[in-house]
Amino acid sequence: MNQPADAILSLVLLSILFSFGSSRLPSLIKAVAFQGIVVSLVPLFVGHELTAGGVIFTQVTLLIRGILIPLCIYMAIKKVRIRREVEPIVGYHASMLAGLALIVAAIAFSRKFDLPGIGQYALLLPTAIALLVAGMFLLMARRNAIAMVLGYITMENGIYLVGATFSVRAQHIVEFGILLDVLAGVMIMAVILQNIKQTLDDVDTALLRTLKE
């Protein structure tokens, strides 16, 4: 644990466990917000020299990813007064153990790749893979719509890290574009959510089935 990047990445992995163990939406949002902040910090410590523009981009990313999006979602759940329970399909204990298993699997899997340039960051690729799978897991294993949105955001964090892994130069610009899309998506989601709530009195995604003709 000599690289500061690895210390930060281990915090990212930890945030996965927290998000799997959270039973209430506010704590899940906090976990994802924490995740967003630490994920945004990673580029500061990963190898290539920082330009002033890069630093600014990183800060803006942090602002959006760590503060703006979570805040948006938090306001959304405040406004529509939905149930706070994340309504798991897979229980919390099982989720937590699954989280541990997926971290192990991600580490084992990442050894298959041999990417130049990130050799000294032992955790970078495993964390990215773990985030992607963790997002998928949240999507599959939680019934609550907001929790699913948070799953998407976790996945997006993973994609961001993959981007940081693969691209060296242009990462900020591409990433920034994606991030703005996500922000827009979250805002639309907040509006739609309100509408779903008004129509169905709930945001349980299982109820969407009733919309079927």
């Binding site: 690895d6 930890l14 163990g21 204990h93 937590m96 541990l100 971290i103 955790l123």
Partner: peptide, 23 residues
């Protein structure tokens, strides 16, 4: 149990990471 399981998860996690670094 979830609270106690957190401790297990933390140590497990620390072990994996340390293992990764010791290589």
């Amino acid at each position: 149990p979830k609270f106690v399981l957190t401790s297990f998860a933390l140590v497990f996690f620390a072990t994996i990471i340390t293992l990764e670094f010791m290589k």
